[in-house]
């Protein structure tokens, strides 16, 4: 039992480091690892993964908030979208064709992959003109970049399109149980014109709230097994603290380079899932 605890704990540390640096939940690692390597049921794995998303978010957010990488105003504006979208997704779950959704979201992520690849050499966005709503809500931000050694002031644009994408991403999370962070990062980075590091840190901040509503349901159903979720969450908390310390010192280009294969992989799996039973 001790050995299994330690193995699950180490898996958690790895997932926590990766998730916190990229603004993702880490389910992309945790779910396959628990089901394939440890032979656990999908229900147990998904429940443990959902609780560990909260751990990734909470553990890393402390450092990101202190460094002002997290844009709390953008986060709260977009959380409205994810929360309402998740609710809407849950309500229409019975009447919608999941395959179409998988393909739609898969293509959307494929397009994001392409854009992210095009922007791979761009360290910071330039020439972003804030729209009227962004100015009214004072969404612009500023942080000290430890990798570049100077302060970065930035503006936020396309405030409403960003919110609309969040509604869809919330619905995707509610309907398909995926996409804690993978839609949020490109929405902020590519659509709203935020710096990549601010996008991943803000995504990290938001995913805790998205996951909390899902986790309550898993708790109520009794899917959260303390002996599985316990060690993994403890590992993820530690990993997220380490990951956040690393991320603030890294260049945006390097973080983006790690993000691209993951988003490409997710896009392909989603399209595959949609096509498989066509």
């Amino acid at each position: 039992m001790v050995i299994t605890f330690i193995e699950i704990f180490l898996l958690g540390i790895g997932a926590g480091i990766m998730g916190s640096m990229l603004g993702l939940g880490g389910g992309i690692i945790i779910v396959p690892a628990l089901t394939i390597l440890f032979g656990m049921s999908m229900r147990t794995a998904v429940a443990a993964s959902t609780v560990s998303i909260i751990a990734t978010s909470t553990g890393a957010a402390v450092a990101y908030l202190r460094d002002r990488l997290t844009n709390t105003r953008v986060a709260i504006w977009l959380e409205m979208g994810t929360a309402l979208g998740a609710l809407g997704g849950a309500l229409i779950a019975g009447v919608i064709n999941q395959r179409v959704l998988y393909i739609m979201f898969g293509l959307l992520l494929g397009y994001s992959t392409y854009n992210m690849f095009k922007a791979r050499k761009q360290e910071l966005p330039s020439g972003i003109v804030p729209d009227a709503l962004s100015q009214k809500l004072r969404l612009g931000g500023s942080y000290y970049d430890k990798a570049l050694g100077h302060r970065v002031d930035y503006q936020v644009t396309r405030t409403v399109p960003g919110l609309i994408i969040m509604i869809f991403s919330g619905a995707a999370a509610g309907l398909l149980g995926i996409g804690a962070g993978i839609f949020k990062v490109p929405a902020m980075d590519q659509v709203m014109g935020m710096p990549f590091k601010a996008s991943t840190a803000t995504s990290n901040f938001m995913i805790g709230v998205t996951a909390a509503s899902g986790a309550v349901v898993y708790f109520a159903r009794g899917d959260v097994q303390p002996l599985v979720a316990g060690p993994i969450v403890l590992g993820v908390l530690l990993g997220a603290i380490i990951g956040a310390k690393l991320m603030v010192r890294l260049r945006a280009n390097l973080i983006r380079l790690c993000f691209i294969p993951l988003i490409a992989y997710t896009a392909l799996t989603m399209i595959y899932r949609g096509v498989k039973w066509w």
Binding site: V51, A55, T58, G208, A212, A215, V216, V224, A229
Partner: peptide, 15 residues
């Protein structure tokens, strides 16, 4: 352990 997980779950909502 469950108490620990519940504290964690409540944290983002409290936030």
């Amino acid at each position: 352990i469950t108490a620990g997980l519940l504290v964690l779950l409540g944290t983002p909502v409290l936030r």
